[in-house]
């Protein structure tokens, strides 16, 4: 039914007046700005409609066609190249259900896997996720042990099957040896994969990243590779952990659980990234939310340091 409706609206023979038909089409493809949608990009009603549509017109996995994108109100040329996500709320989700934090993380892993599929499907090139921050070591010992010994290794092994390129950024020096080994295997095995590039930030912090970049530059200065007067912000850009990415700076940052901060994630790289704060806890995030975030991103004006694009 839902595929008939847009066809009916697009049809030349429809009895609707052309202005009304065009208005309704624009409304459904999200090109007409809605003030309330601008304030709160993910509205319950639009979610319900999107889920209703998903139920009755299953979209295939793999990259969708341009027509499919347009039908969802998305324009291929405005798709964010790099989406960063702060997957917050796993523990709260578990607590609300009387489960252990470990169960919350497992539920989060499933959603992260789904997000990788959505990104592949909708044409996003890089997905980076804040898996473990430099501050997370102060969490309960049992939780940290679980994350470091089985959870992240399991996540890496599972995600290797998705056929995407994988990279891990962050301070690997104090990670367990088995996890370091899993990281090396994953990066080596997937380095030639095309399509989505999935980046997990493990033991990462924005300040750590800036500091390690400065340290690398200091070494180069000491070794006479570069001169002191050559040091500028562009040089720091080139030494950040994200320098190997095709698109190092996120276009869109999604943070779940309604928190309105970036919690020391990619501080340098997020200078001109659009922020989308979602009220749902991470394990509750679904494709409707993701598409709504993409649509919201495309609707907003973009500005890179004053240059409107």
């Amino acid at each position: 039914m839902c595929s008939l409706l847009p066809k009916y609206l697009r049809s030349k023979t429809t009895t609707l007046p052309p202005q009304l038909r065009r208005y309704l089409l624009l409304r459904v493809t999200g090109d007409i700005e809605s003030p309330s949608l601008l304030k709160n990009p993910i509205m319950p009603l639009s979610n319900t409609i999107l889920m209703f549509r998903r139920q009755f017109c299953k979209l295939p996995f793999g990259v969708v066609s341009k027509e499919e994108l347009l039908r969802e109100g998305l324009q291929p040329e405005l798709m964010p190249k790099h989406v960063a996500i702060i997957p917050d709320g796993n523990r709260r989700w578990a607590k609300e259900r009387g489960l252990s934090p470990e169960k919350g993380h497992e539920a989060g892993k499933k959603v992260l896997g789904d997000l990788c599929r959505y990104c592949s499907k909708w044409g996003v090139k890089v997905l980076s996720a804040y898996a473990f921050s430099t501050e997370n070591w102060s969490r309960p010992k049992a939780e940290v042990t679980f994350l470091m010994t089985s959870y992240f290794e399991g996540l890496i092994h599972d995600f290797m099957r998705y056929g995407m390129k994988m990279s891990i950024i962050g301070d690997k020096s104090n990670l367990p040896n088995s996890l370091k080994e899993a990281i090396n295997i994953a990066e080596e095995t997937t380095k030639d994969n095309t399509g989505l590039h999935f980046v997990a930030a493990l033991n990462y912090g924005g300040r750590y990243d800036i500091t390690q970049a400065t340290k690398k530059i200091a070494t180069k200065v000491k070794d006479g590779v570069i001169q002191l007067e050559e040091i500028n912000d562009k040089l720091i850009d080139q030494e950040l952990e994200t320098k190997y990415l095709e698109y190092p700076n996120p276009d869109l940052l999604i943070r779940t659980s309604g928190e309105l901060r970036i919690s020391n994630y990619m501080l340098w790289q997020l200078a001109y990234s659009e922020f989308c704060f979602v009220d749902k806890l991470f394990p509750e995030l679904d494709e409707a939310d993701f598409v709504a975030a993409l649509r919201s991103f495309q609707r907003r004006q973009r500005s890179y340091g004053g240059n409107k694009i």
């Binding site: 001109y272 659009e274 922020f275």
Partner: peptide
Amino acid sequence: GPVRCHMGFPAWRIRYTEIVHMG
């Protein structure tokens, strides 16, 4: 402002800053 980003505010200073877009 029209965009929902911090427009290059000093990165070192916003680790745990709450960010609210006011329009």
